[in-house]
Design a protein around this nucleic acid. Structure first.
Lengths: 124, 124
DNA sequence: AATCCATGTGAGGTTTCCTTACATGGTCGT
DNA sequence: ACGACCATGTAAGGAAACCTCACATGGATT
C-alpha cells in the first residue's frame, strides 16, 4: 500500500541514521560501498536514507555482531532479493490473471446490457 | 502507543520538510517564529522536524490558502492545545481511578490469601 | 610474519543551514 | 489614494554537516 511508499521515501540524513542504528558514518558508507544499501542522493550529493534502509542496516549490524562477515551478509541479501523478485513475479502473474478475469466479466456485462436494453449512456 | 513516539521523533531536515509540504524555508521559519511549531535543534543548531510537525505545517498551509491569517491560525491551534490538555486531564483522572481500583482489589486479594492460607511466597 | 577485513581518523573541499536585515507586493482602514 | 501591516522573498556572511580520498590500526586467518 501507501505505507510501502512512505517506508521507501529517502528523508533521513546520515546523522539521524547514525543515531537510529548506532552505527558510525564510516560503517554506513562502507556497507553502501558493498551495495547492501543504495541511499538516494540530493542534488548536492548528500545521502538520504529511507526507513527501509534503516531496517537493512539494523539487520547488517545484527549479523556482524553474530560473527557473520561481509561476504556472508551479501549472500543472505542476494538470496532475499531473489526470493522477493520471485514473489513479485508471482504477484504479476496473479495481477494479470485478475485483470483478464475482470475484463471477461466486463465484456459479459456489456453483452448483457445490450441484450437487456439501451444502456449506452453509461459507456461514456 | 509507540507510533506516537515515532511520529514525534525529530528526524527530518528542513530541506525534506520543504519537499513534503511544498513550503519555503522562509515560511517554515516564520511559522516557528510564531510558535506554531517547535522543531528540535541539533547540537549544531540545525532544525529537525517530526512527522507531527509536517501535519501541523500542512494544516497551516491549508488555512492560509483558505484566507485565514496568522492571528486566526494561532487561535485555532491554541484552542486545539487546550482541548488536548483537557482530554489529557481526563485521562489522568481515569488513570488514577483505575489505579485506585486495582490497588483496592490487590488489598482484597491479599486479605483473602491470608485467610485462605500461606501464599507469602508470591509476595516477591 | 604477512595478509586481509572492518573500522578509525584526518585533511581539504562543498553543500546545507543558520541568523540578520532589508525589500516587496497585497490588503486594509482612514 | 496613502500609509501601515502582513506574509514572504532575497542576499550576505558564517558555521555545521557532509562528501571523497587516503592512510592507519587492531584482530583474525593463513
Amino acid at each position: 500500500m501507501g505505507s510501502e511508499i512512505r517506508r521507501s521515501m529517502p528523508v533521513l540524513p546520515i546523522s539521524i541514521v547514525m543515531q537510529l542504528t548506532d552505527l558510525t558514518a564510516r560503517q554506513i558508507r562502507y556497507y553502501e560501498e558493498h551495495n547492501l544499501i543504495q541511499p538516494h542522493r540530493t542534488e548536492g550529493n548528500r545521502r538520504m536514507f529511507s526507513l527501509n534502509d534503516i531496517d537493512v542496516l539494523l539487520e547488517i549490524k545484527e549479523m556482524l555482531e553474530r560473527g557473520t562477515n561481509m561476504a556472508g551478509i551479501k549472500k543472505v541479501f542476494e538470496r532475499k532479493k531473489q526470493l522477493a523478485s520471485e514473489q513479485q513475479e508471482i504477484s504479476d502473474r496473479d495481477l494479470r490473471r485478475i485483470m483478464r478475469e475482470e475484463m471477461r466479466q466486463a465484456r459479459n456485462m456489456q453483452k448483457t446490457s445490450i441484450r437487456q436494453g439501451n444502456f449506452s449512456r453509461f459507456n461514456q
